[in-house]
Design a binder for these strands. Structure first.
Lengths: 149, 149
DNA sequence: CACCGTTTCTGGAACGAGTCAAGTCTCAGT
DNA sequence: ACTGAGACTTGACTCGTTCCAGAAACGGTG
Protein backbone atom coordinates (compact mmCIF):
# COMPACT_ATOMS: atom_id res chain seq x y z
CA UNK A 1 0.00 0.00 0.00
CA UNK A 2 2.47 2.56 1.19
CA UNK A 3 4.98 1.63 -1.45
CA UNK A 4 3.48 3.16 -4.56
CA UNK A 5 2.79 6.46 -2.89
CA UNK A 6 6.33 6.77 -1.55
CA UNK A 7 7.88 5.99 -4.89
CA UNK A 8 5.55 8.34 -6.68
CA UNK A 9 6.37 11.18 -4.32
CA UNK A 10 10.11 10.59 -4.57
CA UNK A 11 9.99 10.33 -8.35
CA UNK A 12 8.12 13.60 -8.48
CA UNK A 13 10.82 15.25 -6.38
CA UNK A 14 8.53 15.77 -3.43
CA UNK A 15 9.42 15.07 0.15
CA UNK A 16 7.97 11.89 1.56
CA UNK A 17 5.96 12.61 4.67
CA UNK A 18 3.30 10.72 6.57
CA UNK A 19 0.43 13.00 5.54
CA UNK A 20 1.47 12.81 1.92
CA UNK A 21 1.71 9.06 1.66
CA UNK A 22 -1.52 8.75 3.61
CA UNK A 23 -3.35 11.11 1.26
CA UNK A 24 -2.16 9.21 -1.78
CA UNK A 25 -3.08 5.89 -0.19
CA UNK A 26 -6.58 7.13 0.49
CA UNK A 27 -6.81 8.30 -3.09
CA UNK A 28 -5.93 4.82 -4.30
CA UNK A 29 -8.65 3.31 -2.13
CA UNK A 30 -11.21 5.97 -3.06
CA UNK A 31 -10.66 6.97 -6.66
CA UNK A 32 -12.90 10.07 -6.54
CA UNK A 33 -12.60 11.46 -3.05
CA UNK A 34 -13.41 14.95 -1.78
CA UNK A 35 -10.87 16.87 0.28
CA UNK A 36 -13.14 16.33 3.23
CA UNK A 37 -13.33 12.56 2.85
CA UNK A 38 -9.59 12.40 2.34
CA UNK A 39 -9.01 14.37 5.53
CA UNK A 40 -11.31 12.07 7.39
CA UNK A 41 -9.65 8.89 6.14
CA UNK A 42 -6.17 10.26 6.69
CA UNK A 43 -7.11 11.05 10.26
CA UNK A 44 -8.24 7.46 10.71
CA UNK A 45 -4.80 6.32 9.59
CA UNK A 46 -2.62 8.89 11.32
CA UNK A 47 -4.62 10.27 14.21
CA UNK A 48 -4.51 13.98 13.51
CA UNK A 49 -4.00 15.96 10.34
CA UNK A 50 -5.21 19.47 9.70
CA UNK A 51 -7.54 20.43 6.91
CA UNK A 52 -4.88 22.79 5.67
CA UNK A 53 -2.31 20.01 5.43
CA UNK A 54 -4.70 18.00 3.28
CA UNK A 55 -5.23 20.94 0.95
CA UNK A 56 -1.48 21.61 0.82
CA UNK A 57 -0.68 18.01 0.02
CA UNK A 58 -3.34 17.86 -2.66
CA UNK A 59 -2.16 21.11 -4.20
CA UNK A 60 1.43 19.89 -4.25
CA UNK A 61 0.42 16.61 -5.86
CA UNK A 62 -1.75 18.31 -8.42
CA UNK A 63 1.12 20.65 -9.28
CA UNK A 64 3.45 17.67 -9.61
CA UNK A 65 0.99 15.87 -11.85
CA UNK A 66 0.43 13.00 -9.42
CA UNK A 67 -3.17 13.90 -8.83
CA UNK A 68 -5.90 15.39 -10.97
CA UNK A 69 -8.59 17.64 -9.58
CA UNK A 70 -12.08 17.79 -11.01
CA UNK A 71 -14.85 20.13 -9.94
CA UNK A 72 -18.30 19.09 -11.10
CA UNK A 73 -20.87 21.86 -10.83
CA UNK A 74 -22.46 21.96 -7.41
CA UNK A 75 -20.22 19.33 -5.88
CA UNK A 76 -17.06 19.87 -3.85
CA UNK A 77 -13.83 19.17 -5.74
CA UNK A 78 -12.88 15.55 -6.34
CA UNK A 79 -9.37 14.18 -6.60
CA UNK A 80 -8.09 11.18 -8.51
CA UNK A 81 -4.78 9.53 -9.24
CA UNK A 82 -5.50 8.69 -12.87
CA UNK A 83 -3.61 11.44 -14.63
CA UNK A 84 -2.28 11.98 -18.08
CA UNK A 85 -4.85 9.98 -20.01
CA UNK A 86 -7.41 12.76 -20.19
CA UNK A 87 -10.38 10.54 -19.48
CA UNK A 88 -13.83 11.94 -18.87
CA UNK A 89 -16.39 11.58 -16.10
CA UNK A 90 -19.90 10.40 -15.60
CA UNK A 91 -21.59 12.11 -12.65
CA UNK A 92 -24.88 11.15 -11.04
CA UNK A 93 -27.20 14.12 -10.57
CA UNK A 94 -28.84 12.50 -7.58
CA UNK A 95 -26.05 11.05 -5.47
CA UNK A 96 -22.96 12.61 -7.01
CA UNK A 97 -21.33 9.27 -7.70
CA UNK A 98 -18.57 9.71 -10.25
CA UNK A 99 -17.29 7.16 -12.70
CA UNK A 100 -14.35 7.30 -15.07
CA UNK A 101 -14.97 7.07 -18.75
CA UNK A 102 -12.48 6.70 -21.55
CA UNK A 103 -12.80 9.18 -24.34
CA UNK A 104 -15.73 8.36 -26.57
CA UNK A 105 -13.90 7.80 -29.79
CA UNK A 106 -10.52 6.60 -28.59
CA UNK A 107 -8.91 9.65 -30.05
CA UNK A 108 -10.06 13.04 -28.79
CA UNK A 109 -12.28 14.74 -31.33
CA UNK A 110 -13.60 16.88 -28.53
CA UNK A 111 -10.22 18.32 -27.75
CA UNK A 112 -9.98 20.41 -30.86
CA UNK A 113 -12.65 23.07 -31.02
CA UNK A 114 -13.55 24.01 -34.57
CA UNK A 115 -13.16 27.69 -33.81
CA UNK A 116 -11.05 28.50 -30.80
CA UNK A 117 -11.81 32.25 -30.92
CA UNK A 118 -8.13 32.98 -30.52
CA UNK A 119 -7.79 31.12 -27.24
CA UNK A 120 -4.72 29.00 -26.54
CA UNK A 121 -6.57 25.88 -25.45
CA UNK A 122 -4.66 23.47 -23.24
CA UNK A 123 -7.37 21.23 -21.84
CA UNK A 124 -10.81 19.95 -22.67
CA UNK A 125 -12.98 18.81 -19.83
CA UNK A 126 -15.97 16.61 -20.51
CA UNK A 127 -18.59 15.72 -17.94
CA UNK A 128 -21.62 13.56 -18.61
CA UNK A 129 -24.58 14.14 -16.31
CA UNK A 130 -27.24 11.55 -15.61
CA UNK A 131 -28.55 9.08 -13.11
CA UNK A 132 -26.48 6.17 -11.91
CA UNK A 133 -28.09 2.73 -11.99
CA UNK A 134 -29.09 2.65 -8.33
CA UNK A 135 -30.54 6.15 -8.41
CA UNK A 136 -32.63 5.23 -11.43
CA UNK A 137 -34.13 2.49 -9.30
CA UNK A 138 -34.78 4.70 -6.29
CA UNK A 139 -36.24 7.31 -8.59
CA UNK A 140 -38.86 5.01 -10.03
CA UNK A 141 -39.75 3.70 -6.57
CA UNK A 142 -39.86 7.06 -4.80
CA UNK A 143 -40.99 9.61 -7.36
CA UNK A 144 -40.72 12.65 -5.16
CA UNK A 145 -36.99 12.89 -4.86
CA UNK A 146 -35.48 16.23 -5.77
CA UNK A 147 -35.12 16.02 -9.50
CA UNK A 148 -32.53 17.20 -11.92
CA UNK A 149 -33.89 20.59 -12.89
CA UNK B 1 -35.14 43.70 -25.30
CA UNK B 2 -37.68 44.45 -22.62
CA UNK B 3 -40.21 42.79 -24.83
CA UNK B 4 -38.49 39.50 -25.27
CA UNK B 5 -38.07 38.99 -21.56
CA UNK B 6 -41.74 39.63 -20.86
CA UNK B 7 -42.89 37.30 -23.58
CA UNK B 8 -40.45 34.64 -22.53
CA UNK B 9 -41.64 34.79 -18.93
CA UNK B 10 -45.28 34.67 -19.90
CA UNK B 11 -44.72 31.81 -22.30
CA UNK B 12 -42.95 29.90 -19.57
CA UNK B 13 -45.93 30.40 -17.28
CA UNK B 14 -44.00 32.64 -14.90
CA UNK B 15 -45.25 35.86 -13.41
CA UNK B 16 -43.92 38.99 -15.04
CA UNK B 17 -42.28 41.19 -12.44
CA UNK B 18 -39.79 44.02 -12.60
CA UNK B 19 -36.91 42.06 -11.11
CA UNK B 20 -37.52 39.18 -13.49
CA UNK B 21 -37.58 41.18 -16.67
CA UNK B 22 -34.59 43.16 -15.47
CA UNK B 23 -32.59 40.01 -14.77
CA UNK B 24 -33.36 38.63 -18.21
CA UNK B 25 -32.51 41.95 -19.83
CA UNK B 26 -29.16 42.00 -18.10
CA UNK B 27 -28.56 38.48 -19.27
CA UNK B 28 -29.17 39.52 -22.86
CA UNK B 29 -26.68 42.37 -22.52
CA UNK B 30 -24.11 40.23 -20.70
CA UNK B 31 -24.28 36.73 -22.11
CA UNK B 32 -22.19 35.12 -19.35
CA UNK B 33 -22.92 37.04 -16.18
CA UNK B 34 -22.37 36.00 -12.57
CA UNK B 35 -25.18 36.31 -10.04
CA UNK B 36 -23.25 39.15 -8.52
CA UNK B 37 -22.89 41.11 -11.73
CA UNK B 38 -26.54 40.54 -12.52
CA UNK B 39 -27.54 41.85 -9.11
CA UNK B 40 -25.39 44.89 -9.63
CA UNK B 41 -26.79 45.68 -13.07
CA UNK B 42 -30.35 45.05 -11.99
CA UNK B 43 -29.84 47.47 -9.13
CA UNK B 44 -28.65 50.06 -11.65
CA UNK B 45 -31.88 49.61 -13.57
CA UNK B 46 -34.34 49.31 -10.70
CA UNK B 47 -32.68 50.93 -7.72
CA UNK B 48 -32.89 48.17 -5.15
CA UNK B 49 -33.14 44.43 -5.47
CA UNK B 50 -32.01 41.90 -2.93
CA UNK B 51 -29.42 39.30 -3.63
CA UNK B 52 -31.97 36.69 -2.73
CA UNK B 53 -34.42 37.97 -5.35
CA UNK B 54 -31.73 37.60 -7.99
CA UNK B 55 -31.02 34.03 -6.96
CA UNK B 56 -34.74 33.23 -6.86
CA UNK B 57 -35.34 34.69 -10.28
CA UNK B 58 -32.39 32.83 -11.73
CA UNK B 59 -33.48 29.57 -10.15
CA UNK B 60 -37.01 30.01 -11.50
CA UNK B 61 -35.72 30.77 -14.98
CA UNK B 62 -33.31 27.86 -14.94
CA UNK B 63 -36.13 25.56 -13.86
CA UNK B 64 -38.32 26.92 -16.66
CA UNK B 65 -35.57 26.41 -19.19
CA UNK B 66 -35.20 30.10 -19.97
CA UNK B 67 -31.72 30.30 -18.57
CA UNK B 68 -28.82 27.90 -18.40
CA UNK B 69 -26.38 27.83 -15.55
CA UNK B 70 -22.76 26.84 -15.95
CA UNK B 71 -20.22 26.45 -13.17
CA UNK B 72 -16.65 26.41 -14.39
CA UNK B 73 -14.22 25.06 -11.79
CA UNK B 74 -13.05 27.79 -9.45
CA UNK B 75 -15.32 30.49 -10.84
CA UNK B 76 -18.71 31.60 -9.53
CA UNK B 77 -21.67 30.30 -11.51
CA UNK B 78 -22.42 31.96 -14.84
CA UNK B 79 -25.83 32.34 -16.41
CA UNK B 80 -26.76 32.56 -20.07
CA UNK B 81 -29.91 32.72 -22.15
CA UNK B 82 -28.75 30.45 -24.93
CA UNK B 83 -30.51 27.23 -24.01
CA UNK B 84 -31.41 24.09 -25.82
CA UNK B 85 -28.61 24.04 -28.37
CA UNK B 86 -26.09 22.35 -26.09
CA UNK B 87 -23.18 24.51 -27.08
CA UNK B 88 -19.88 24.37 -25.27
CA UNK B 89 -17.65 26.92 -23.56
CA UNK B 90 -14.18 28.29 -23.80
CA UNK B 91 -12.93 29.65 -20.49
CA UNK B 92 -9.82 31.73 -19.89
CA UNK B 93 -7.71 30.42 -17.03
CA UNK B 94 -6.37 33.87 -16.27
CA UNK B 95 -9.34 36.22 -16.43
CA UNK B 96 -12.27 33.85 -16.49
CA UNK B 97 -13.65 35.27 -19.72
CA UNK B 98 -16.10 32.81 -21.22
CA UNK B 99 -16.98 32.38 -24.87
CA UNK B 100 -19.63 30.24 -26.51
CA UNK B 101 -18.56 27.55 -28.89
CA UNK B 102 -20.66 25.43 -31.16
CA UNK B 103 -20.03 21.73 -30.92
CA UNK B 104 -16.80 20.79 -32.64
CA UNK B 105 -18.14 18.50 -35.28
CA UNK B 106 -21.58 19.91 -35.89
CA UNK B 107 -23.11 16.73 -34.62
CA UNK B 108 -22.32 15.73 -31.05
CA UNK B 109 -19.86 12.88 -30.98
CA UNK B 110 -19.08 13.80 -27.41
CA UNK B 111 -22.64 13.37 -26.30
CA UNK B 112 -22.71 9.63 -26.60
CA UNK B 113 -20.27 7.96 -24.29
CA UNK B 114 -19.03 4.62 -25.62
CA UNK B 115 -19.77 2.91 -22.34
CA UNK B 116 -22.27 4.67 -20.10
CA UNK B 117 -21.72 2.29 -17.16
CA UNK B 118 -25.49 1.95 -16.78
CA UNK B 119 -26.05 5.67 -16.26
CA UNK B 120 -29.04 7.39 -17.87
CA UNK B 121 -27.10 10.26 -19.40
CA UNK B 122 -29.08 13.40 -20.16
CA UNK B 123 -26.41 16.01 -20.73
CA UNK B 124 -22.81 16.32 -21.81
CA UNK B 125 -20.92 19.32 -20.67
CA UNK B 126 -17.75 20.35 -22.43
CA UNK B 127 -15.42 23.07 -21.21
CA UNK B 128 -12.24 24.09 -22.98
CA UNK B 129 -9.61 25.73 -20.79
CA UNK B 130 -6.96 28.06 -22.10
CA UNK B 131 -5.83 31.65 -22.36
CA UNK B 132 -7.91 34.24 -24.12
CA UNK B 133 -6.17 36.45 -26.69
CA UNK B 134 -5.62 39.42 -24.41
CA UNK B 135 -4.34 37.29 -21.55
CA UNK B 136 -1.86 35.64 -23.88
CA UNK B 137 -0.52 39.11 -24.55
CA UNK B 138 -0.38 40.15 -20.90
CA UNK B 139 1.20 36.85 -20.01
CA UNK B 140 4.11 37.26 -22.39
CA UNK B 141 4.66 40.82 -21.20
CA UNK B 142 4.35 40.14 -17.46
CA UNK B 143 5.01 36.46 -16.94
CA UNK B 144 4.08 36.29 -13.28
CA UNK B 145 0.65 37.80 -13.08
CA UNK B 146 -1.65 35.92 -10.83
CA UNK B 147 -4.68 37.95 -11.60
CA UNK B 148 -8.38 37.36 -11.69
CA UNK B 149 -10.51 39.88 -13.53
C1' DC C 1 -62.43 48.07 -7.18
C1' DA C 2 -61.63 45.91 -2.66
C1' DC C 3 -60.59 41.33 -1.15
C1' DC C 4 -57.90 37.13 -0.75
C1' DG C 5 -54.67 33.40 -1.16
C1' DT C 6 -50.26 32.80 -3.64
C1' DT C 7 -46.15 33.95 -5.05
C1' DT C 8 -42.30 36.91 -4.82
C1' DC C 9 -39.12 40.05 -2.49
C1' DT C 10 -36.41 41.93 1.55
C1' DG C 11 -32.87 41.66 5.01
C1' DG C 12 -30.03 39.33 7.66
C1' DA C 13 -28.08 35.23 9.54
C1' DA C 14 -26.00 30.94 8.45
C1' DC C 15 -23.44 27.58 5.68
C1' DG C 16 -19.61 24.86 3.48
C1' DA C 17 -15.59 24.87 0.74
C1' DG C 18 -11.59 26.79 0.42
C1' DT C 19 -7.69 30.32 1.65
C1' DC C 20 -4.45 33.21 4.40
C1' DA C 21 -1.02 34.18 7.88
C1' DA C 22 2.15 33.17 11.51
C1' DG C 23 4.37 30.12 14.22
C1' DT C 24 6.20 25.21 15.11
C1' DC C 25 7.89 20.95 13.60
C1' DT C 26 10.18 17.45 10.40
C1' DC C 27 12.59 15.56 6.64
C1' DA C 28 16.92 14.94 4.13
C1' DG C 29 21.69 16.43 3.07
C1' DT C 30 26.06 17.62 5.35
C1' DA D 1 23.31 14.77 15.26
C1' DC D 2 22.76 19.64 13.05
C1' DT D 3 20.48 22.67 10.26
C1' DG D 4 17.69 25.02 6.97
C1' DA D 5 14.10 24.64 3.50
C1' DG D 6 9.97 22.89 3.24
C1' DA D 7 5.77 20.86 5.53
C1' DC D 8 2.29 21.01 9.14
C1' DT D 9 -0.86 23.24 12.85
C1' DT D 10 -4.09 26.51 14.42
C1' DG D 11 -7.55 29.60 13.90
C1' DA D 12 -9.54 33.35 11.78
C1' DC D 13 -11.30 34.72 7.55
C1' DT D 14 -13.33 35.27 2.59
C1' DC D 15 -16.56 34.18 -0.89
C1' DG D 16 -20.53 32.43 -3.21
C1' DT D 17 -24.58 30.62 -2.04
C1' DT D 18 -28.68 29.17 0.70
C1' DC D 19 -31.98 29.38 4.51
C1' DC D 20 -35.41 31.75 7.15
C1' DA D 21 -39.27 34.77 8.60
C1' DG D 22 -41.85 38.36 7.56
C1' DA D 23 -43.47 42.16 4.34
C1' DA D 24 -45.03 43.37 -0.15
C1' DA D 25 -46.86 42.71 -4.74
C1' DC D 26 -49.61 40.07 -7.99
C1' DG D 27 -53.86 38.75 -10.24
C1' DG D 28 -58.21 36.13 -10.12
C1' DT D 29 -62.58 36.68 -7.84
C1' DG D 30 -67.01 38.74 -5.83
Amino acid sequence: MGTWSETALRDAGLRVTRPRTAVLDVLVEHPHATADLIGHEVRVKLGKVSKQAVYDVLAACVAAGLVRQIEPAGLPALFETRTGDNHHHLVCRACGRTTDLDCATGAQPCLTPSDDAGYAVDEAEVVFWGLCPSCQLNRSLAPNVRSSA
